[in-house]
Amino acid sequence: MTYKDVQSCAAYIKERFDGDIPSIAMVLGSGLNSLADAVKNATVFSFLDLPGFPKPTVEGHAGRMLIGTLEGKPVICMQGRAHAYEGNSPEKLAFSTRVLWALGVEILVLTNAAGSLMKDAGPGSLMAITDHINFSGINPLVGVNDDRFGPRFPDVTNAWDKELTSTFEKCADKLGFPLHKGTYLMAMGPNFETPAEIQAFRVMGANAVGMSTVPECLTARHVGMRVCGVSSITNYAAGMTGDELTHHETMEFGAIAAVNLEKLLRAFVEQIAA
């Protein structure tokens, strides 16, 4: 998708939204639909109607953009996302994030459902993402670089904004529930990982594993957006308990984690939004 395609989609949204575009956007992962319901006075765009947008096909990903308020603060909420395992090209995975940038978004909050590699972070808990490992074999920045988006070789030493992550921690402390911190590893999927892979990921330094989020982070950093994120822990990773992993479990425990995640994101937006 070209720079012109991105600007065209952004123009489509601006023409149909009455007001200033928020500077903060959130991407919601599996099981987090209740959070979208909390957005007030929302103008809703279906991904089906947004030119060039990838169309989510996974249960729990509604495929909608909501522009409204959370705790009285302006915010864009992306209800669902596209995944590489759905057959989307790396370039396609970058599109929605680039559109957010073209709209004027400065801070991107990424959430996902993830399997825990930490025994003290069980299903239903939350983990602030402090770094990531891209084990997916894909990168949204592959191909001819358009300097209008960003440099050919972007630095991602500080991909996950430390100041914003610290705000998450302070909000969790005030709310009175634990917020784990760790490195998120992205695998391609769609199968869950094998016990041997999880053992290898643990050696590599991963604390949670999932099938999304990294392409959005890389795309956002390429265009200069600040990025932070939280994983909803939906299960222990393969081999840690001996139980079979299912998407139903992801949805079930994602809904449990969403209760605290909604509280956390409300408090976070209230702290940093203009």
Rank of each mutant, 00 (worst) to 15 (best):
Q271D: 15
D155K: 14
E197S: 02
Q199G: 09
K263G: 02
V99Y: 03
N41G: 11
G68M: 13
E249A: 12
F149R: 00
N88C: 03
L126V: 14
V58P: 07
L110K: 08
Y3P: 05
V209G: 00
E197Y: 03
A238D: 09
A11S: 13
I256C: 04
A42V: 01
G182D: 08
N33M: 11
P54D: 05
P195M: 06
T183R: 10
E86R: 06
F201P: 02
A42N: 03
S125Y: 10
F168E: 11
G31M: 06
T130V: 15
Y184C: 09
E106K: 13
R152Q: 10
P178G: 00
F192S: 04
D5F: 04
F201G: 03
R98E: 01
I272C: 12
V39Y: 10
T2I: 14
E216M: 04
E262N: 15
G205N: 01
K4T: 15
P154V: 11
C9Q: 06
F53K: 00
H132L: 10
L48F: 13
G80E: 14
S125G: 06
A128W: 08
G205S: 09
Y236P: 05
M1V: 12
A237K: 00
S212T: 03
L100N: 06
Q7F: 09
F153V: 05
V142L: 13
G72W: 08
S89P: 10
A10V: 01
P51L: 01
D147V: 13
V259D: 10
L218R: 04
K263R: 14
P22G: 06
